[in-house]
Amino acid sequence: MRGTLSSALVCILLYGILIIPFTTYLRNKPFLEKLGYVPSVTALKSVAADHKEMVAASLVMKVLMYFGGLSEKSQESQVVIPPDYKAMSRLLHGAVKLDPYNMDAYYFAQAFLTWDVKQYKIANDLLIYGMKYRTWDWYLPFFAGFNSAFFLKEYEAAARYYQRAGELSGSDLSRLLAGRYMQESGQTELAINYLSVMMNGEKNPALKKNYQLRLTAFREARRIELARERYREVKGAMPATVEQLVSGGFLSPPPMDPYGGEFYLEADGKVSTTSKYAFAGVKNHKK
């Protein structure tokens, strides 16, 4: 009796000593490892048996938790850790193979594949795949339309997608088809429209913050655009720099890029930012 008691005590003590380094080790495991290597989808499909939807959901969850944890970390310590977008994309593609109806997967893929990774083609292919299944869902064509118009500059395809999104939602999306959006100059407004829709529908705090940040950046850009127009009306010529607008009293307060970049005017007057609407670390992951 005393023997077993003392051995139990020793083991509990050892557990206490071990648990802290153990959890530290797990916490600091490389992210790729954390996200896990997902076996081939075919194999997963076989083992998942009648739990395909569940396995798909858990893959999406995994990506979501990983991303949520990362963005939290980057906000705490200001150290920007580039997320492993490739692995995330792989997991999400796996998820929709298992459950082609999983909206979370499409939604999340759209969220990072475009702005952050700039894989617009992959994003749109995924959305087109999803549209075959989620035939009632206006979000997918809405996303695809935005990608086509904003990133790919394929205005004809964008119009088609927006048309479909409008039909499905039954709401008035046709205003997005207005000519001014379907060209370079309407881009900022298009982005603001898109981002507001996204942000309003978002519950996930990590993503919502993401949208908010980007929306703020675009609103700043829009402010500069409006200032630029006023400047042109008043002075009859295009301003060369953003500083001109600020010092001329057209833009107050001075614009702030939440991504830490500097806004500037391109030669043709287009508003840009050195951050390219993403955190600096993302640069390394451009294609």
Binding site: A57, V60, M103, D104, F108, L207
Partner: peptide, 16 residues
């Protein structure tokens, strides 16, 4: 925790 399909996810989990 789901972004877009809370009810769908509860159904998935319950049925699974």
């Amino acid at each position: 925790l789901s972004m877009r399909q809370v009810t769908e996810l509860s159904l998935t989990l319950s049925l699974s």
